[in-house]
Amino acid sequence: MDSRVWDNRAWLFVVPVMAFVLFSSLIPMMTVVNYSFQDSMGQNSFFWNGPGWFQNLLDPTTAVGARFQGALLRNFAFSFTVLAIEIPLGIAVALCIPKSGWRVGAVLVAIALPLLIPYNVVGTIWQLFSRTDIGLLGVALGRSGVPFNVTQNAGSAWAVIVLMDVWHWTSMVALLCYAGLKAIPDAYYQAARIDGANRWSVFRNIELPKLRKVLVIAMLLRFMGSFMIYTEPFTVTGGGPGEDTSFLSIDLVKMALGQVDLGNAAAYSLVYNLITLTVCWMFFTYTTHADSKDVA
């Protein structure tokens, strides 16, 4: 016999959270959705535009579509470059961190320092650092004859932005990996030593497999971070030279707040959001799938 008493009053506890989410995300989000299907001639009068903005956005032959496609490709290129550098570098750094002794604390604090600096400060530091008149990097490169100019040369701008992101975020990957490495029981290393395995096969057959889960999380975090990046490159290059470092967020802000092209910008941000969600979902299913296989 079912003796449970149904009492839906418990839902009342959830109401404050629901209300908060409603006002903080849902309602603003719905206004964006609203904009994305309507057009306005000002004076707060709107008329229905159907999927027009979206068609516009996803058609690369239109001006907005070309712009979106350019920014999207740049953004993917940036994310992959940054991941390709930060993940291996983070692992390498983690392997070099001492496992015990007083040096551990000192090294960890030193490594964590870049993570504590606000985004716009990081941007400012690198902006100044790469200036060709007073910046240490800019002046040094200029003197040694390397063509370097962040405001005029796309290669220079990209180099600085990638370098800045690596400097800012490799620490996080390294710290995650360090935690993962610390969790490997000593018996594994002993067993490998007794087997006579060399350093490479210890890394390949013990450390890397044991780090897999941590690395998936690190990749997810770094992908999201770099895919939604705004402040740092904006501070250094402002999206230039030309459009060369205009990533999705920078381009979107320009469109929405600079040109007040609300319809296009609304469609833009919804598609952007959808891409982010999709990638998030892919990572999530991958990790849960890996969990169900239960890699020891």
């Binding site: 029981p185 018996a187 594994y188 002993q190 067993a191 057959n205 013990i206 890397l208 497999p209 044991k210 890699v295 020891a296």
Partner: peptide, 10 residues
């Protein structure tokens, strides 16, 4: 060892 130590990917 007491723990079951094998190479996880092999």
């Amino acid at each position: 060892y007491q723990q079951f130590v094998n190479y996880p990917t092999l």
